[in-house]
Structures are given as C-alpha cells and as structure tokens.
C-alpha cells in the first residue's frame, strides 16, 4: 500500500533582499495512514516551512522550487488553487502554535466551526450548528451549548486550542498537521491537549504530522521522527530507535542537553555555538561548525542520508565509516 503523504526532495525558498534563499532543502519523508510523525528541531530550522509547503500555504515571497508532495497519489505542488482548497480543511487540516491569533476574533466560535462544515460537507446552518456543538463536546469543552455562541477572546488559551482542534476535526480529515500545538500552553494544559489528540487519533485512525521542538512530546506522541537542522533532515527513524540509538551528533547533543527530571546531573552536556543563519550556510555538513567529530571531509562535502539500521538514517559521514569498519 502506498503512503498517505509522500514528500520527496522538496526545496522551498523565500525571496529576500539577498535574492532567493532556500529555507528547506532536500526534505523527504513519508507518512502512513493513522501514523504519527514528529518533526523536531530548533527554532528556524524549517519545521513550519515544511508544513506550510505541504498545505501550499506559503507566503507570496516563498515558493517550492523542487520536489513533489504526494497526498494519496495526487501531487499537491502542481494542483490548482481551487483543487487545493477542496483538500485543505477537508482532507488535510491544520492547527497552529498561537491559539490566540489563529481564531478570527470577530466571529463566534460556532460560526467558525460551521463554516467549513457548510463549505465541505454541504450542511445547512442548523445541521452545522448541531454538529459544532457535538464537536465542541468531543474535544472536552464544558458548556458546549453556550460556548458556541461565545467570541474567542472569552476563552483561555487551552480552550481556544481545543476549538482549533474541533475545527480541524470537523470534516474528519485523513491528515492533521499540528504546528507546535502546545508550545504556547502551560504543561498541565499541554498534557490535556496531547491527551485529546491521542484519543482523537485512535478514534478516527487519523494520521498526524506533529511539529514540535520538545523531544518529550515526540517521545510521548509519535511513531516516527524526523530531526531537522538548518533546513535539512539530519536523522529519521522510528521513535524507539532514535531514542535508543541517536546517531547524528546533533541528535545526540540535543538529547543530552535537556535536563532530566528523573536523575541528577552535575553538569549538562551542551552543543557549543549557534545555528548558522540562512545566508551563511556552510557548504559542507551544516552541523560542522558545532560538531565535535568534524573532519576535513565534513567541511568540504555535504553528507547524504546514510542508513544506520533498517528504517533509520542519518545525514553524517560517521555512518559511512561504521559501514566500512564492519
């Protein structure tokens, strides 16, 4: 069976005053039906650009220069605007990081939910409203009958994110893209939202593309992970393998540098330096400026994704050496 979503080799660039600068390059991954795929990485590494590319929602100064994005076999990159609109919100839904700004402040909650129901499912007003109440109940909003008639500013951050999820779920999408859905929320509220997403996924057998910078969230939610660094996928594989055997030096550093709740560490291992900026990308391995294993080869030549184990690959020359040594 072919995958639900198949992203292969996409490169997305933005027009800046220094010309087109690629924000992500050579990004490939697949997502099966009902699977949860995590994309992790630090701020600016291109997680949001990846998700917006899939949704074809890039701002006007951005464009996909290379690669294809296949959703159930259809290539989204070449789809017309009107065809894409039929997929958006209907088959692929998206929720954003900022629950404060992603709801329209001038419309009541109910209207915002029923809009897509009327658009995609051809429901009439009263059907849509009844469904909206059901949806609000299903995402755990108390007093759903009253909340449908509230404006967004009356709700807390966690409630708004629930409403966003309700809107996303309204057309029973096959794929939900969640771009840092809990980053703006407190831990106890985050736990509620993650719990809700788990429940929904199970009930609807929906695939989720979960974007986050929190490895803890990845470990709890995802089946597979894509680790991104400076616009490229540096490692991908199943969650268990990546946590058991992180192979790219960046992934290793990232995992070591988070303080652990359950043990006491005298000193945190840390990755020196900063992420290189878009216009000053090193020509070889993009992690070379911060990597402790850097060699001449790394500076000269960029590694490709090399296999580590089955279904686990890393973009690092060290993987090659291991193969040779074997």
């Amino acid at each position: 069976m072919s995958s639900l979503l198949e992203v292969s080799g996409i490169k997305t660039s933005f027009l800046t005053n220094k010309g087109y600068l690629p924000a992500i390059e050579d990004v490939s991954f697949t997502l099966d039906k009902g699977e949860v795929l995590g994309i992790v990485g630090e701020s600016g590494c291109g997680k949001s650009v990846t998700s917006l590319s899939v949704m074809q929602l890039l701002s006007t100064n951005g464009k996909i220069e290379k690669g294809s994005i296949r959703f159930e076999g259809k290539d989204l990159v070449n789809l017309s605007d009107s065809d894409m609109r039929k997929i958006r919100g209907n088959e692929i839904a998206m929720i954003f990081q900022e629950p404060m700004t992603s709801l329209n402040p001038v419309h009541k909650i109910g209207r915002q939910i029923s809009e897509s129901l009327m658009l995609h499912k051809g429901m009439n007003k009263s059907q849509a409203r009844a469904k909206a109440v059901d949806l609000l109940k299903s995402v755990g909003i108390p007093r759903a009958e009253q909340i449908v008639d509230e404006y967004p500013h009356r709700l807390s951050g966690g409630m708004r994110q629930r409403v966003m999820i309700a809107i996303a779920m309204s057309c029973d999408p096959k794929l939900l893209i969640a771009d840092e859905p809990t980053t703006a929320l407190d831990v106890t509220i985050q736990a509620q939202i993650l719990d809700l997403m788990r429940k929904i996924r199970k009930e609807h057998n929906m695939a989720i593309l979960l974007i986050t910078h929190d490895l803890g969230v990845v470990a709890e939610m995802c089946d597979r992970v894509v680790v991104m660094y400076a616009g490229k996928v540096v490692e991908q594989g199943s969650v268990k393998e990546i946590f058991r055997n992180p192979s790219h030096p960046y992934t290793v550093g990232l995992m070591n540098s988070i303080p652990k709740l359950e043990e006491r560490q005298a000193r945190l291992p840390s990755i020196p330096g900063n992420v290189p900026s878009l216009e000053l990308m090193p020509k070889g391995c993009r992690f070379a400026t911060r990597c402790e294993f850097v060699t001449e080869k790394c500076i000269q030549e960029e590694p490709t994704l090399l296999p580590v184990e089955e279904n686990h690959e890393a973009r690092c020359w060290l993987m090659k050496k291991e193969e040779v040594a074997k």
Binding site: P272, G273, L280, P282, R290
Partner: peptide, 18 residues
Amino acid sequence: NMQEPETPTKLEVQLAYE
C-alpha cells in the same frame, strides 16, 4: 569560557558581506 561560535569561515563571510 565557553566556545565562541565563530568559525573563521563564517567570520570571513560576514566581514565580506558587511
């Protein structure tokens, strides 16, 4: 003293750019 993240390459590029 922790490593200052300035590799020569990056610095050079930056200077040229400025």
